[in-house]
Design a binder for these strands. Structure first.
Length: 536
DNA sequence: CTGGGGATGGGGCCC
DNA sequence: CGGGCCCCATCCCCA
């Protein structure tokens, strides 16, 4: 019995020891796991802190960038507005300008771009500008779920450029890895002054994508100067028409045009101008809606120059992108430049023309799509009436310098009043008469700003081939005109002629006020401006 | 103020 | 007749 008791006691003590050991082991396991868990928690907290700090830094940086951008935008506001105005109507489907730009944007083989893609933007939003911008991941967190993250179509992102080049779907909606790219679009928002217009619709994205791609593809379709050689007018003088306003443009234009109706820009065609048809129809113009392409002029110049480089496609110019694209909806719609305006309303014609010329000066791709093109192809030239109202002349004169203005007026009057030489080819802009179609075509580039000839050396552009040729003497060092009196040589004949006055002492230009004589009329003019302004 | 360099635009000629 | 080329007048810019 006693043994039994002792046995039980021993068993109890043993079990207690075992239980204690088990508890200790369990505790140890729990402690270990807890330590690991705690470690993980600490790590997570550390990551959270670091992320939060990054977020703060990003916000600060963004605010700083916005401030800087706002200051820059404010500083350059007039020009920005002008640039916006220049492209007014590009995708609005307004007037021939729209047609020109749009068809230049639209490659012939691109069958998917429809008008409504460009135009379906928030028509009821008054003057709100919708801007394309990037929402970075940090911003996305701040703005909450459901915010579509997009990045601007990176003019600074070669991947996007490649996408655009290859016609692949734009990275704007697909490339989510590029969110840290520079956010150039934001500036547009600030230009428009609508900070709440930070989100854009998918339609906008599509529009932007298409526009960019088309801009690029347009550049692919540009041609060399030989192809750009102005084609012949080829329009016989209509019976009974005294003068010929020449609505001519290069038929083999840089970019393929759509064909047929303007609202179906998707049909390739041979006629480079048929895509203007609808744009010429006021009824089809989506009034009150503007999709504007705001091209940063400097960048555009930089990028677009040398496109026509003597037949050489400059690879680096393969990509021509709009720096900033704004879809803008405006309440007030300026008069459109349709056929009626071209033939009548000189005010709208002039204003749009000014915009148009500016765009030409900055946008190579548009250079071969002047309004002339529209009418030449759409209307038989012989049925046209030259813009003869005074408004039109005055407004077009605005693009001439004072010199040209005086000349154009004098010569234009002579042309219409029946000059001794037969100048029956009329400039559709200034009504000036020329003896041949080539001459008037050449002259009309003065109005359109078309400069199809680009120097391969310095990328300067010229409206005439002979001007380019003469310019290139600068690079070749060729100076075919040498002075017989001294060692001086000149690249231009006029330079030599002027130089010769140094030797002859010829000063044919005398000041009527003080009698002082000058070798050049311009010297005399400057002298009179400075010394006798009150008298003159 | 002068002169050189470069550009613009019109006109004419030649092939 | 069209394209290319040249000449000319003129302007602007700059040193």
């Amino acid at each position: 019995m006693a043994n039994c008791m002792v046995f039980h006691t021993q068993i109890a003590s043993i079990m207690e020891v075992l239980a204690n050991a088990a508890v200790a082991e369990i505790c140890k396991l729990v402690d270990d796991d807890y330590a690991v868990f705690r470690l993980e928690i600490n790590q997570s907290q550390k990551e959270n802190r670091s992320l939060r700090r990054k977020l703060l830094e990003l916000k600060v940086a963004r605010e700083r960038a916005e401030r800087t951008m706002r200051e820059r935008v404010l500083a350059s506001r007039p020009s920005s507005v002008k640039i916006l105005d220049r492209y007014r109507g590009i995708s609005r489907g307004e007037g021939h300008l729209t047609g020109g730009h749009r068809s230049f944007l639209k490659p012939a083989e691109h069958n998917t771009w429809r008008d409504d893609q460009t135009i379906t933007v928030d028509e009821g939003s008054g003057t709100t500008s919708q801007s394309f911008m990037v929402i970075e991941s940090a911003d996305a967190e701040a703005t909450g779920p459901g915010v579509k993250q997009e990045r601007s179509e990176g003019e600074e992102d070669p991947r996007n450029i490649r996408d655009i080049q290859s016609g692949a779907p734009s990275a704007a909606t697909e490339d989510s890895t590029n969110q840290a790219q520079p956010r150039t679009r934001r500036s547009i928002t600030e230009v428009s002054g609508t900070q709440n217009a930070v989100l854009k619709s998918e339609t906008d994205t599509k529009t932007l994508t298409v526009t960019h791609r088309l801009l690029h593809q347009g550049s692919n379709h540009r041609s060399d100067p030989e192809r750009l050689g102005l084609s012949k007018l080829g329009s016989p003088l209509a019976p009974g028409s005294e003068y010929l306003p020449v609505f001519h443009q290069s038929q083999r234009t840089v970019n393929s045009h759509g064909d047929g109706d303007g609202d179906t820009l998707d049909t390739a065609g041979d006629d480079p101008s048929c895509s203007y048809n609808t744009e010429m129809d006021p009824g089809n113009m989506p009034l009150g809606l503007e999709t504007q392409i705001n091209l940063s002029r400097g960048d555009w110049n930089r990028r677009s120059s040398s496109v026509y480089s003597e037949g050489c496609l400059d690879k680096k110019e393969e990509v021509i992108l709009a720096d900033e694209v704004t879809v803008k909806v405006e309440g007030d719609v300026p008069p459109t430049w349709n056929a009626d305006h071209l033939l009548g309303d000189g005010h709208s014609q002039g204003r749009d023309f000014l915009d148009y010329r500016e765009s030409l000066e900055t946008n190579l791709n548009v250079t071969t799509h002047s309004p002339l093109h529209v009418f030449k192809d759409r209307y038989p030239v012989s049925t046209l009436i030259a813009p003869s109202d005074s408004h039109g002349c005055v407004l077009f004169d605005q693009v001439l310098n004072s010199n040209d203005r005086a000349r154009a007026q004098a010569q234009g009057e002579g042309a219409t009043s029946g000059s001794s030489k037969e100048k029956r080819f009329l400039c559709m802009f200034c009504n000036k008469g020329f003896s041949s179609s080539q001459k008037v075509e050449r002259h009309q580039r003065v109005h359109t700003g078309e400069k199809p000839f680009s120097c391969t050396q310095c990328e300067k552009r010229f409206s005439r081939q002979d001007t380019l040729k003469r310019h290139q003497r600068i690079h070749t060092g060729e100076k075919p005109y040498s002075c017989s009196q001294c060692h001086m040589r000149f690249a231009q004949a006029g330079q030599l002629k002027m130089h010769l006055k140094v030797h002859t002492g010829e000063r044919p230009f005398a000041c009527t006020h003080c009698g002082k004589r000058f070798s050049e009329r311009s010297y005399l003019r400057i002298h009179q401006q400075k010394m006798h302004t009150a008298h003159v």
